[in-house]
Write a protein that binds this DNA or RNA. Structure first.
Lengths: 215, 215
DNA sequence: TCATAAATGGACTGTCAAGTCCAATTCGGT
DNA sequence: ACCGAATTGGACTTGACAGTCCATTTATGA
């Protein structure tokens, strides 16, 4: 299980539409399984079964399991940050930020607090095992933070936040609260810890507004 | 990899001092490896090598790998909550809580932000795979929270916190921030996210003091 | 249409890991 | 010292999994 070894250009130079579809199908199936069971607990046979493909296909499109896992990380990162970008793009007030909080909590409730954050799970499992995976996930979190920071900057520009508030730092803290809340929720099987953590985070942002005392 | 199946009473009725030592040695070695590589990535052969034991010994003291992993969870829980109990027992003011924050950050810095929280890693890997593991970890976090809540209650009794502040809820949010901060720190290889998350948490506690505006 | 490249099927190999088994050894109490 | 239980050594079995190989089918472009 080494990860960072080969940056081989395994992809065939010419890719047919059918080939691209197969490749995408493999990654999607792998992402789904990895999300539910973890990277190490997902076997290539599982992925083959779930995507209706054969060994040859896996190794035709990916150099090895590591390469496939990197593709999975990439997809999950795009999914999460894409979803967050959508949820956050209209956020430019504290009230809308609270709406975002409610949506996050609702999603967790819908999942019965099972699974946590796809990025968080991958990070916990792979950050110490593979430098390349770690770097990709760090970038993913960075992108997420930038989306959140954009929203916070919009709030600052509207005068809802103090001039000296630091959107990037606030965003980091908010995401930390979210991830930690998800982890505790996953462990306790209640959304309660997530709610408490996010409320704290929102208060923290609110605290950066005006002179400290706001609802 | 099923976990919750057997509550078998595998432990021999009579345990010698030597036997108990061997058992402890196995658990300690396993805990060490699991902490660094994860449960699934740790093989019994690894554990045998690290603890200088044989297959028979593993299966003499534990019904199967699952049982051993449960023992590991128990040990790690005791270590973490024990360590936190020590760090938190003298905490009864906001200033001392800040001292606690500094110690947590210092520990992370000493580890170069590698590894995260042993409980958090186990929770992320096992919460969705094994009901018994999930329950044990939930208890572990609960115990940790109670230690933190005790400190917060002491602060409230001293008049540092408002009467209607809820120590248990505050403690939950603080631990969420810590866990999330550790995860981001592990991914980014900097203590910075942990610092930001814990500062937010401390502010959140401070905000529950007096009427909202305190340093 | 034909040559070539892409795509696929699936058997096969080597390795590693969990778990079993039995024989040998050590220990504790009497 | 002696007996049964506790403890230990380590070979062996079984299965799973990553990765290899080659034959076959399908698409593409001149």
């Amino acid at each position: 299980m080494r990860w960072q070894k080969k940056a081989r250009s395994k992809e065939p130079r010419k890719a047919t539409a059918r080939g691209a579809a197969t490749r995408a199908r493999i990654i999607a199936a792998a992402a789904d399984l990895v999300c539910r069971r973890g990277a190490r607990a997902t076997s290539l046979d599982d992925i083959m079964a779930a995507s209706a493909t054969s060994k040859s296909q896996l190794y035709h499109y990916f150099a090895d399991k590591d390469a496939l896992m990197r593709a999975v990380i990439e997809l999950q990162t795009r999914r999460v940050t894409g979803g967050q970008a959508t949820l956050l793009e209209a956020v430019d007030t504290l009230d809308r930020l609270r709406g975002w909080r409610d949506e996050v909590v609702a999603m967790n409730k819908a999942a019965h607090s099972v699974g946590g954050c796809p990025l968080g799970s991958l990070a916990s499992e792979l950050a110490d095992q593979s430098e390349s995976a770690r770097a990709m996930l760090a970038d993913g979190f960075g992108l997420w933070r930038s989306h959140l920071a954009r929203a916070l900057r919009a709030m600052r520009d509207r005068g809802e936040l103090k001039e000296d508030a630091k959107p990037e730092d606030l965003a980091t803290a908010v995401i930390a609260a979210l991830e930690g809340g998800l982890l505790l929720a996953q462990t306790a099987r209640t959304t309660r810890p997530l709610e408490l953590a996010l409320d704290m985070a929102i208060d923290h942002v609110a605290r950066a507004s005006q002179c400290g005392a706001a609802a």
